[in-house]
């Protein structure tokens, strides 16, 4: 599991995508990350590099992050060709440096997709994901006037499956990793979460049609079942959710 072989501190060469703005050309630049403790997280390693850049009056590397515990979905970069790096089921902020070896070269790139414009360096604009939710990723109930929570029993299995899907943190790694930059895993997860619950049933048809239409309008690619998405998803969301999305779409479209 750990590659650093018990070594406490390692030195790395980083090649980081630097791009000042969305309509400017970017390129990889090389930095040294020296004396990196293997207990650090990947983002803490970047912090260390940035501190040095700032002190030397150079522009620090911009990257998104917030919770640093794998739940907010803010962080993410393609590390050595893998979205969120080499560890399975792990966000970038939860990736630790013990998974790297001394003198490794690490290539760090932003999520790439037509739907995600680069804002700066590793920071991309993922508002397309919000736009998809706005198109129908909700149950139309207003506050107040809802029945007692135990009025509708939900089979435990359905609730568990809904929870599996609802665990999506909206990070966008599935799209970054997909050879087609398709957003089907994200949309599949959201549609599944609501379609599996009786509360979501009344709007199921409308929801799936609207969300898929929005997804297409945003410029994401088409799913060809490459399964790269589920392989990189930090919440290990399964492509059975994509199948369910397809099913819901067929139901909504033809029935």
């Amino acid at each position: 599991m750990t590659r650093s072989n018990g070594k406490k501190n390692i030195n790395l060469t980083l090649k980081v995508w630097r791009q000042v703005g969305s309509d400017v050309k970017g390129r990889l630049e090389t930095y040294q990350a020296n004396n990196i403790s293997t207990d650090m997280s990947f983002l803490e390693m970047l912090d260390v590099v940035n501190e040095e850049l700032i002190i030397n009056h150079r522009d620090p590397i911009a990257f998104d992050h917030d919770c640093r515990e794998g739940i907010c979905g803010m962080c993410g970069a393609v590390v050595n060709g893998r979205a969120h790096g080499p560890e399975k089921g792990t966000t970038l902020c939860q990736l630790h440096m013990r998974h790297f070896s001394d003198r490794d070269t690490v290539i760090i790139e932003p999520w790439r997709s037509r739907a995600f414009k680069i804002i700066k360096d590793l920071v991309v604009d993922r508002s397309a994901l919000d736009a998809i939710i706005q198109a129908g990723g909700y149950i139309s109930v207003s506050a107040g006037g809802t029945p007692d929570a135990n009025v509708i029993p939900v089979p435990q299995e359905a609730a568990e499956k809904a929870m599996d899907a609802a665990a999506c943190i909206g990070c966008g790694a599935c799209i970054a990793a997909c050879p087609n930059a398709s957003a089907m895993l994200f949309v599949g997860a959201k549609v599944s979460h609501l379609a599996l619950l009786p509360q979501g049933a009344p709007e199921a048809a409308r929801r799936v049609l609207k969300m898929v239409q929005k997804m297409d309008d945003c410029g994401f690619g088409n799913c060809t079942n490459e399964r790269e998405c589920e392989a990189v998803c930090p919440k290990e969301i399964s492509i059975t959710n994509i199948a369910r999305l397809n099913r819901e779409y067929i139901k909504a479209g033809f029935l």
Binding site: P179, S182, G221, N222, E228, C229, A231
Partner: peptide, 28 residues
């Protein structure tokens, strides 16, 4: 159409891209 759409969906390619284990010869 699908192929074309997919090409367009990622105008800028990755410098380095590795499979995380999903793809097969067939799917590629």
């Amino acid at each position: 159409f699908l192929f074309w759409g997919n090409l367009k969906a990622r105008p800028q390619r990755y410098v380095m891209k590795k499979s995380a284990g999903g793809r097969t010869i067939g799917s590629r």
